[in-house]
């Protein structure tokens, strides 16, 4: 009985106004709504920025659904990603995701900003796009932040964030690959785990 209700409910949802459908989500609106939601929660709860654990959990909740960590991991590890076992892939993603989301959370909480300006997105192809934004600060020059997104199963997912010309993920590429080359992927995962534990 409950299953039937759930099925009916999901049918209702599927026939809901198109505004809720994935296909009407633009890359910019994905970034806009995720960013707004992080900013709103920070404003509603200012002591979040002094509580790293809760801050991280909040940012994680908001941004995680919009990231494609598989693609991020593949870009960072290259051939070592293809050679890794499913279990290694899963463990690597889990630790790397923690690291990136934590970094993003610390960055978001530490900058005083007045607003975010959205520049016009640049398509790289049908399924890849850059959304350039600029965090306008307190009288100082703004910080350009570009989000790289691609289309996966009908929704736009972030696969990189470039802050003032520096890619949040590619900056790890040399370091990670040389560690994997010398000591294997399990050593890399162990190191990430230790680091994440330290910065908790």
């Amino acid at each position: 009985m409950r299953n039937v209700a759930a099925a009916l409910l999901s049918l209702l949802l599927l026939s809901a106004p198109p505004a809720f459908a994935d296909s009407h989500e633009t890359p910019e609106s994905v970034i806009r709504s995720a960013t707004n939601s992080v900013v709103e929660r920070l404003e509603a709860n200012p002591d979040l920025s002094r509580d790293p654990g809760r801050l991280y959990a909040m940012v994680n909740d908001v941004v995680l659904p919009h990231f494609d960590f598989n693609r991020i991991a593949r870009r960072v590890l290259g051939k070592y990603w293809r050679r890794a076992s499913d279990d290694q892939k899963r463990r690597f993603i889990s630790e790397f995701q923690t690291l990136l989301v934590k970094t993003y959370a610390v960055a978001v909480a530490s900058y005083e900003y007045e607003g975010i300006a959205y520049r016009s997105p640049r398509s790289r192809s049908e399924t890849e796009i850059s959304v350039p934004t600029e965090i306008t600060g307190n009288g100082g020059p703004g910080i350009p932040i570009t989000y790289e997104l691609h289309l996966v199963d009908g929704s736009w997912k972030v696969y990189d964030i470039v802050v003032d010309g520096v890619s949040l993920s590619l900056t790890y590429r040399n370091d990670f690959r040389s560690l994997v080359r010398q000591r294997g992927i399990d050593a890399l995962i162990a190191r990430l785990m230790a680091h994440n534990h330290e910065t908790r």
Binding site: L99, S110, T199
Partner: peptide, 9 residues
């Protein structure tokens, strides 16, 4: 602080 969080090495 960001560097401390982000950087492994």
């Amino acid at each position: 602080q960001i560097l401390g969080t982000a950087a492994i090495d």
